[in-house]
């Protein structure tokens, strides 16, 4: 092949590489193995790495209006639990325009709306791999949701996020996924901690309801990458 032919081939290869990179979510959303502080967490992450990558990819492609936080997918220990209980966890930022109607709600009402919209949908996606759900080392699930509470109102100000951390033990999650519990039951029995910016709000009592937003909402004109199927 001539030098110029090689150049053309190299450019074509670059295009293909760029296209494949754009089609894949960044793996930095998944906690790296060397970041686990116990063998139990590391073992789970090693055994179920494919499930973690599948979860990352499904959220990336099929819920494009949310953003998974870096190093937030993995088997973490909830801080309020003393033993080394390992919960499959994910933290997402829900992107939405500031809405006066939404802002006027009480914090519990905003949290309930977000819980209803996302917790059930994410629990289902976190349980697509039967081997993961069946692993006795897995103790539960953590879903962390955050959204914009307040935009910067002056130069130099920073936006403020509101956050809920939802902890669902494995038995409760599996009963919900097996349709023996409603999402209202899950909200009633799960531990939910609220945060306003960096400040803790303590445990929140939420009233959740079925919300099929995630399965029905479509971003206008959005086309998933070839080979990706969203349910």
């Amino acid at each position: 092949m001539s030098g110029k032919g090689t150049l053309a081939a190299a450019l074509a290869a670059c295009l293909l590489l760029a296209a494949s990179a754009w089609a894949a979510p960044s793996e930095d959303r998944i906690l790296a193995l060397d970041q686990y502080t116990t063998d139990k967490g590391r073992r789970l992450a090693t055994a179920h790495g494919r499930a973690l990558r599948a979860l990352n990819a499904e959220i990336y492609h099929c819920m494009p209006w949310v953003e998974v936080q870096k190093s937030s997918i993995g088997f973490f220990r909830p801080k309020h639990i003393a033993s080394d209980s390992r919960y499959l966890s994910v933290r997402i930022y829900v992107e939405q325009d500031p809405s006066p109607a939404f802002a006027a709600l009480r914090v519990e009402e905003r949290a309930s709306a977000m819980f209803s919209r996302y917790v059930g949908a994410l629990l289902r996606r976190m349980n697509e791999d039967a081997a993961l759900a069946g692993d006795p080392a897995l103790d539960g699930y953590t879903v962390i949701l955050e959204w914009l509470k307040q935009m910067p109102r002056a130069q130099g100000e920073r936006p403020v996020h509101e956050t809920i951390a939802v902890f669902v033990d494995k038995a409760l999650a599996l009963e919900y996924l097996g349709r023996r519990r409603s999402i209202t039951d899950v909200a009633a029995h799960a531990k939910v901690r609220g945060f306003d910016g960096e400040a803790g709000l303590g445990d929140l009592r939420l009233a959740a309801w079925d919300d099929n937003f995630v399965s029905t909402y479509k971003v206008a004109n959005y086309q998933v990458e070839a080979g990706v199927t969203c349910r």
């Binding site: 973490f76 953590t142 962390i144 920073r158 996020h161 910016g197 960096e198 998933v224």
Partner: peptide, 28 residues
């Protein structure tokens, strides 16, 4: 495309938010 959304998101970034750190909630 998914890449279009990422580009728009990056361009609309309002700055580093005040939010709870992962370490306040979870241990690695």
């Amino acid at each position: 495309t998914r890449q279009d959304i990422q580009v728009a998101r990056d361009q609309n970034w309002w700055g580093k938010p005040i939010t709870v750190s992962q370490e306040q909630i979870l241990e690695r």
